[in-house]
Amino acid sequence: MKKTPIVRLDTSSQAPAYEQIAAEIRALLVAGELLPGAPLPTVRQLALDLNVHHNTVAQAYRILAGEGWLDLRRGRGARVVSRSKPARANPRAGRTFRSQLKRLLAKAVAEGVAPKLIARQLTLHAQYVRTWGLRKGD
């Protein structure tokens, strides 16, 4: 049975709800759990299920449409589109990733997460990221 893609929202998080929603959907798109052609719930339906204003979901959908993941057409809802990998990686994106990861690791260590656990998670995620590349035909 096919797993239902789920979006989660943490109401205690400092991150704005639209960013959380966009990040959750992006993760599903990158992992191939939402394939090209898949329809997404309407803005109103998702806003209702997550108990947020419909503008919040609309903003998240617009971010993903701007990144080339979604096709938004009035009256037809949101649909996943086939997105090719950018020809050249954005150098700023690489730098941001490195600095964010460093900050995140420092925070985890400061909060007492065992370095062994961190290392194991990083290895697992590295393996997982490689499968994303394979799925995209790299």
Binding site: V7, R8, D10, T11, P39, L40, Q45, L50
Partner: peptide, 11 residues
């Protein structure tokens, strides 16, 4: 719970 979840499939 502070967490909310929704299925990303049209009803």
């Amino acid at each position: 719970s502070v967490h909310r979840e929704a299925a990303l499939v049209p009803r």
